[in-house]
Each structure stands twice: as C-alpha cells, then as structure tokens.
Amino acid sequence: MERIRSFIDAAGWPRIIIALFLLGLFVVAPFVQVRLDASISDTLVRFGMNGVMVLAMVPMVQAGCGLNFGLPLGIIAGLLGAITSIELELTGILGVLVAMCIAIPIAAVFGWAYGLLLNRVKGGEMMIATYVGFSSVAFMCIMWLLLPYKSPNMVWGYAGTGLRTTISVDGYWIRAISDFLSFQQGKYFYFPTGMFLFLALLCVLMWLFMRTKTGTAMTTVGSNPDYARASGVDVDRMRTISVILSTVLGAIGIIVYQQSFGFIQLYMGPFYMAFPAVASILIGGASVNKATILNVIIGTILFQGILTMTPSVINSIVQTDMSEVVRIVVSNGMILYALTRVVKVKSR
C-alpha cells in the first residue's frame, strides 16, 4: 500500500489517469473493430515524428529557462531549410541532410538572439516565449509571401509568387529517413526503423552532452543558479547555449516530422506546435525545471498514443469524433497541472 501511494505521489494523478486511459483504449480497441496492429504502427510513426521536437524541450528545462513555448522559432528555421532544399530540387536522404544543414545555422542564430532576450527577462520566460513564438510565426507569414522562392511545386500557380500553405515533399524526400531499414508486417503494420535510429542517435547525443562539463553546468544552472555562479559557471552563457540547442533541435525535429508526414506546412502551421511537445514531456514525468530523456520517450508515446487511439476507438464507441476535445483537454490540462505544482526548493 505504502509503495503504491509513494508511486502515485511521485507520478502524480494526471499522469496515471492518462496512462490508464491509454491502456483502456488499447484494451477496448479490438472489441470495436479497431485493428491493434494498425494502431500500434500509427502510434510508433507519430512517436518517431514528434520525438525530436519533444527532445528539444530538455535543454531549456534543465537550464531553468522553463518550457520552450517558443519552439516555433526553431520550427521556422527548419521550414526555411526544408523549402530551400526543395528549391534546390534535392531528393532522398541528401535532400533531408541539406535541409538540416541549412536549418541548423539559421536555428543557431535565432536561438542565440532568443537566448539573449530570455536572459533579460528572467522569471517571465514562458509567457514571453509563447508570444515570441506566435509573433515570429505571424512575421514569417509575411515572409512566405515575399521570399523569392521559385519552384513551381511551392508557389501559388496563378500568381507565380508566394509560397503555398501546404507543400508536398512527395518526389523529393518523403520518408527519406523513415524508410531506412524500415519494414512492413502484413497490411497494416509499418515500422519506420530509420526514424527511430535517428531519434535514438539524437537521444544518445543529448545524453552524452548532459554528461559533459557544459551539460553538467547547464543542469546546475537550472537547479540553483547561485550555486552555479559561485562555482565559476557563466549562468547567462549556459542559458543561451540551452536555448540555442533547443531551437536547433526544434529545426531538426520539424524536418523529421515533415519527411514522415509528407508535407511542409507553412503560414499558421507551426503556430501551436509547441503545445503538443510541451504537453508530451510533462506527461512523461518532467516538471517545469527537471526533465530527462526517459521523460521524453514515455511522454511522447503516451501522448501520441492517446492522439492515435481516441479518434479511432472513441469514434467507434460513441460515433462521434471527440479526439480534438480530448487532445485539448489532455495537453493543456497537463501543462496547467505542471504550472500549478512548481515547488521551488530554494530558500529565498
């Protein structure tokens, strides 16, 4: 009994409810003619697609900058990389790599500026991050219209200028990463091995980074900035590095997402993209100032699992698509829960 209670205390009710809910969905699925193999495959694909963007949350949380609601900034860098790669007519894995190579420096510059800004507004990071994200997306809406891209696959046919809202990567680098060593089991089960390998690679790199001198310092800055300063760590620099890292991962994340999804969504597409990522890592057990790679993996599977299962299972049960509502309530409820549960340990 005691052990159960301490487990519940540690995990928190919302997480347990979400996990049980997902479990329930999987149990019910076969009874309402929802194919389990297809559902699991779907969940896995979505996990791979979103994993990198969730991973992007880790550095900033660890450095005490809070949840990165400003992820759209990184995503924009990724979008710029992706459309440039298509403009250059690159295909296959080369296209993806070039997209990333273009996106990463842009993201680094964005992240650096964004980091400088966040260092001046300590304590109010999350709200400002949200609106920096929103306004950068809105600003890019103007840019998508004006940027001189020419590829007929991307611009509006009738005007000849201005990028389209949705750009297909089919024929360029659709599933370029996913299909590496991937396999199909039966009709419904598809396993994107390449995407998992890529995600695993990034997770390992992150794991290693967190164990270097810089990574250790970053975690310490998040844990107690005064201690870190007294130990000779440049707090602002660590925070900036964490923001750059998060932004770069956001850029890589969206490219991974697009190659699997098959489309690049411009304009208001990236607008709310930070929220599922934030919710995922919180569901995985992270708090506003502590996150691990395990949190990323568990959280993404749980959250994406629910997003996959609710439309199919709930639809079959009540003949209504309630997935949208479930998504809003689960993701924002989780963020709300985390925000109201911050226990600051510091004495002052």
Partner: peptide, 24 residues
C-alpha cells in the same frame, strides 16, 4: 492581413518583454 496578426502578437510580446526587463 498577416501584418495585423503579426502586430497583435508582436505588441503583446514587446509589452511583456519591456515589463519583465523593467522589473529586472
């Protein structure tokens, strides 16, 4: 249209930054 959306969000962002900065 996009410009006014940008301005709406941008204004909130700027005001929040100025406030935090000033408080700092």
């Amino acid at each position: 249209e996009f410009f006014r959306v940008f301005v709406s969000y941008g204004v909130i962002a700027i005001a929040l930054v100025l406030y935090s900065w000033r408080r700092h």
